[in-house]
Amino acid sequence: MKILNCPINGPRPLQEFHFGGELRPNPLDRKDGADADWADYVFNRDGEPGVKREWWYHIPSGTWFIAERDNVTDQFQRTYLYGAEQTDG
C-alpha cells in the first residue's frame, strides 16, 4: 500500500485516506458565467495524464489537504494544507 504524507499526521498508509477528487476552482468565482461554462465546471474534469492537484482526507483525524500527484506513476510529489501552497513544500 502506498504511503501518503499527511501535512498534519505525517506518512501513513493510503488506507487511512479518502480521495477527494481534483482541486477545482471555488464555485463562488464561477457562478456568474454562462450556462455552458457552468456545465463545464460542474461536469468536466482534467482527467489527462500528468501531475494533478488533488484533495485528500485523512480519515482518523478528519484532515483535508492537497496533494500533488502524478496520475501515471502514482508518485506523490508534495502535500500541503489548502491555501498553504505558497508557504509549504
Binding site: 500500500m1 499526521n9 501513513r12 498508509p13 488506507q15 487511512e16 485523512h58 480519515i59 482518523p60 483525524s61
Partner: peptide, 24 residues
C-alpha cells in the same frame, strides 16, 4: 494497526485506524 509502534513517541497521540476503526 499499520503503525510501527517501536518508533512511536510515548506521550503523543496518534490518529489512526485499529481493526478498521478510527482511533486516537
Amino acid at each position: 494497526c499499520g503503525i510501527d509502534f517501536r518508533e512511536a513517541n510515548g506521550g503523543r497521540a496518534i490518529f489512526t485506524r485499529v481493526a478498521g476503526v478510527s482511533c486516537a
